[in-house]
Design a protein around this nucleic acid. Structure first.
Lengths: 190, 190
DNA sequence: GGCCTGTCTGGCACTAAGTGTCAATCAGGC
DNA sequence: GCCTGATTGACACTTAGTGCCAGACAGGCC
């Protein structure tokens, strides 16, 4: 638990991600190899594999802690707020990304345009099911897992659909609006 | 369009899938290599790659045409049936798998237990969004894509969640019941 | 029957992902 | 300054996946 070490490791990871992202956006995700990234980052291929097991992990690194963050945000919502409303609220909040919008758009285009990345992103969202499960069950006041999981999975599906539309619209429509539209459509579906 | 050839190719594919599945269920999916499958099927590795680009494709081969089939089934539902109800009906119908239940359960366990397989399965389900989009839009009487996509994505998410619970319960509860429970939970969520 | 043509096959070679091993190195505690 | 534990980079190896090419093979045509 060496704090200095953790900090320099963290710095190294951040640095590698920045370098790799530049390469991905420049040459394309699939066309960029681990060797390219390692060379550009000035570390050995083997060490790069120790930081990130796959290329997808580099792109999705920042998504790793979103599940627990979402769970915390959900627990912080008022107790009497209906689940679906609360989920919409926290997704709007979590996905309120910061940083250069143009770059974010290019990354999104890469994500939705690269099958392996898209798949990994779906997997990460899958993880949210277990992260959010306890709190959603509490709000539903039920013992059964399935209703809670179905609701979480649907909410995440809405997030994914809204994200794709946001990308298609080249960021012209705020994600929060699209999210609201998606949530409303599902809520009113019969 | 040589019919004789199509038939023998189809037979070869069916044969390879059967052989590969036995290996997967015996040794595990990840532990089985293309070389193993090619040897067991009596064809060259190179030819095997021509039939199936990836190991995942072998397992998910039968899922390939489910999207269009679902679209056709949806179009066949009564016009005045609400979308969510119609979607539930066709999913019950489509997923009414035939064959040895014990084997099906083992395959499901492999699917939900192998990340790369799970990811590919999610990708396949993603494809349903475009397959079902026209018919769902027609039923919603809307021009906008997002509401329809959100509803389809949620329905598929319910299918996935129900499938996972079915597997967890070792097939004890009929998938149709779980599907109904999931759809109801989402419909009633506020 | 023999030939032509297009397709399928298998073998070879190659790139790239991903993993195990091991010696060298580096940072911090004593 | 030395010891110890973790990190690193180099090497070797397996596996996925692809390009290329020569040979087999089936059907159509003369």
């Amino acid at each position: 638990m060496s704090t200095l070490w953790s900090r320099s490791r963290q710095a190294a990871i951040t640095e590698v991600i920045a370098v790799a992202m530049d390469l991905f956006l420049d040459k394309g995700f699939e066309a960029t190899t681990f060797d390219d990234i390692a060379a550009a980052a000035g570390i050995s291929r083997r060490s790069l594999f120790r930081y990130f097991g796959t290329k997808e992990d580099i792109v999705l690194f920042h998504m790793a802690d979103e599940g627990p963050r979402a769970a915390a945000a959900l627990a912080a919502r008022p107790d009497d707020e209906p689940v679906w409303t609360a989920l919409l609220a926290i997704l709007k909040q979590i996905e309120n990304e910061t940083g250069d919008p143009a770059r974010l758009l290019k990354i999104s285009e890469m994500m939705y345009g690269t099958p392996s990345l898209r798949a990994r992103s779906l997997e990460k969202h899958l993880q949210w099911q277990s992260d959010l499960l306890p709190e959603v069950k509490r709000r539903l006041a039920t013992e059964a897992d399935l209703p809670a999981i179905a609701i979480i999975a649907s909410a995440v599906a809405c997030l994914d659909a809204a994200g794709e539309q946001w990308t298609r619209a080249r960021g012209a429509i705020p994600l929060a609006d699209l999210l609201e539209e998606a949530f409303t459509a599902v809520r009113e579906a019969r």
